[in-house]
Simulated assay, not measured.
Amino acid sequence: MRSVIPSRPAAGYFMLKNETGKDRKIVSAASPDCGMLMLHLSKHEGGEHMAMVDSVDVPAGGSVSFAPGGYHLMCVKPSNRVKPGNAVKMTLTFDDGGTLTADFKVRNANGE
């Protein structure tokens, strides 16, 4: 997670590998430390802007990257725990109903 200014939206970045033989699809994300957690994509069409997406494909035997300039988790209304040095729990939900929960270390705007 990168937190730029307290109380402003923070962004979540990660790499997710799918080591199965089945395509997977992330359909939602949640965190007790975000008032709302959305799947977002930065687009560079006539200027940079972000758009919410309904799902993100994770191909069988492949991976997907959530990184600056591309897919990311948008943490709206972050709690006071979303500050550098802390970790926050994030849960991804897949189209088959499965979930994956992980701790995301919170970093500053420079990723430190």
Rank of each mutant, 00 (worst) to 15 (best):
D33F: 03
G46H: 09
F66K: 00
H49I: 09
P68E: 13
H49A: 15
L41N: 10
A51H: 07
G61C: 09
D54G: 08
D33P: 01
G62M: 09
V53Y: 04
F66N: 02
A60R: 07
S65C: 12
L41Y: 12
L41S: 09
A60Q: 10
S42F: 06
D54E: 15
V53W: 07
G35R: 01
H44Y: 13
M50D: 15
L37S: 02
V64N: 01
G62D: 06
M36S: 15
H49N: 14
G69T: 04
L37Y: 03
S65K: 12
D57I: 05
L39N: 01
M52P: 07
G46K: 08
M38G: 06
M38Q: 11
L39W: 01
S65V: 13
H44D: 15
E45S: 13
H44P: 03
A51Y: 02
H44N: 15
S55R: 09
M50S: 11
F66A: 02
P59W: 04
G35Q: 05
P32C: 10
G69H: 04
M38V: 11
L37V: 05
S63K: 14
V56K: 03
G35L: 06
C34F: 03
M52S: 11
P32N: 06
M38P: 01
E45K: 11
V56L: 05
G61F: 03
V53G: 06
L39Q: 00
S63Q: 15
H44C: 10
L37E: 01
M38D: 11
V56D: 03
A30C: 01
S42T: 15
S42M: 14
S31K: 04
D54W: 07
L37R: 01
V56Y: 02
A67C: 07
H49K: 12
K43A: 14
V56I: 15
C34A: 11
L39A: 01
A30Q: 07
F66Y: 07
S63D: 13
G62W: 08
S42W: 08
V64E: 06
P32H: 04
V53N: 06
G35P: 03
L41C: 10
V58G: 00
G47V: 09
P68R: 13
D33Y: 01
A30I: 01
E48T: 15
M50I: 07
H40D: 12
L41F: 13
A29W: 03
S42N: 10
G47M: 09
A60Y: 06
E45N: 13
D33H: 04
V58T: 02
E45Q: 13
V64K: 02
G61T: 06
A60T: 08
V64G: 02
A29T: 06
P32V: 08
V58N: 00
S63Y: 13
S55H: 12
G62L: 07
H40E: 15
G62R: 06
A29K: 04
L41P: 00
S42K: 04
S65A: 14
S63M: 15
D33W: 02
D54P: 04
